[in-house]
């Protein structure tokens, strides 16, 4: 309660949450009080949507209107789609940049999910020595600021990786040079690596909490790890897979830093984030385009969210525990 209350009163709406009293008095007041949690919810929703709403309205106003008055004083006459027009007709090509974004975000979402799901299952249900330590070490890497990896990775994408043997003056190529520098492939490979600790962490938490009886029963039926993983664990983990997919897609779609580093001077491979950031112009001269840009940018992730939201279903486990 404490958190909810303080935050809400901070937004200037101290009244409603106060009435959250308990008890079974059946009278009109009670009927009213029953609706208060819903009221609180919608209040939060309204507060949350204010910046987005302002952004949305401003995205249809030109620069001077945005600078002169607040978005809540919008006049229908000043609405314009010029900002969107600027973005859609950008010389760098919005269509191409959206394709590039997709070429980065889709592999960078699907591949980590698969790899991390294997690993999470391994850490949760395959007994081997040093399991706990290895898991903690893996997840601890979550705390590494990814900026430190940018230069070594770029070097690897530019020239591969090799080790020079001591004394012999011979180099052994560990990772050949696939000529990946400046391609979207290098970006999604990087995302895949960086996503690993969090993905394992999140999926492991869920997969390890699946009921043990399930696995024992399957084992007795003669199922091997591969079958258990494929037939049992994956279907049961759909909500958490969907949750991770949503975030990973978002992060990779919205990423600027990694794409900017890896793609460098290769304009034809730039994703939308870079295109829109560039439209803002030197000294933020064209910053008024950013609201429209933010919506163009956010459109695809929102569609993904809506598409995946329906996988958060209660009671996935219900049938399996009984059966």
């Amino acid at each position: 309660m404490s958190a909810t209350t303080t935050t809400l009163s901070g937004t200037g709406q101290p009244g409603p949450s106060s009435a959250g009293q308990s008890g079974g008095i059946v009278d009109r007041a009670y009927q009213f009080l029953r609706r208060i949690p819903t009221g609180v919810l919608w209040l939060i929703v309204v507060v949350w949507s204010i910046p987005t709403l302002g952004l949305f309205i401003n995205s249809f106003r030109d620069r001077d209107a945005q600078r002169a008055t607040g978005w809540w004083k919008v006049k229908p006459s000043e609405l314009t789609i010029d900002n969107y027009d600027t973005i859609f007709s950008a010389r760098a090509g919005l269509g191409r940049s959206l394709l590039n974004s997709a070429a980065i975000a889709i592999p960078a979402t699907i591949i980590p999910i698969a790899i991390a799901a294997f690993a999470a299952y391994g850490f949760a249900w395959i007994p081997f020595r040093g399991r706990k330590g290895l898991f903690i070490a893996t997840v601890a890497l979550l705390a590494i600021p990814l900026q430190v990896a940018l230069i070594p990775l770029l070097q690897m994408f530019v020239g591969g990786a090799s080790v020079t043997l001591p004394l012999l003056d011979k180099t052994i190529v560990l990772i050949p040079d696939f000529d990946l520098a400046g391609t979207t492939t290098s970006v999604w490979l990087t995302h895949t690596g960086f996503a690993m600790p969090f993905a394992i962490f999140l999926l492991h938490n869920y997969i390890s909490s699946l009921p043990k009886d399930l696995f024992e029963a399957a084992r007795i039926d003669g199922a091997d790890h591969f079958t258990i993983f494929w037939r049992l664990v994956l279907p049961l983990s759909i909500p958490v897979l969907a949750a991770f997919a949503i975030f990973q897609f978002l992060w990779t779609w919205n990423d600027y830093l990694i794409a900017n580093t890896m793609i460098g001077a290769n304009a034809s491979q730039q994703p939308t984030t870079i295109l829109i950031a560039n439209l803002a112009g030197d000294f933020g001269r064209n910053e008024y385009i950013l609201p429209a840009g933010a919506f163009v940018q956010a459109f695809v992730p929102l569609v993904v969210f809506f598409a995946l939201q329906r996988y958060f279903v209660r009671g996935l486990l219900a049938g399996s525990v009984k059966g």
Partner: peptide
Amino acid sequence: AVIFIGPALAFISVMLVIPA
């Protein structure tokens, strides 16, 4: 253990451990 965890560890060591 190797088959399930190995691919993830390979990515992690190249992308995170060595830079760290």
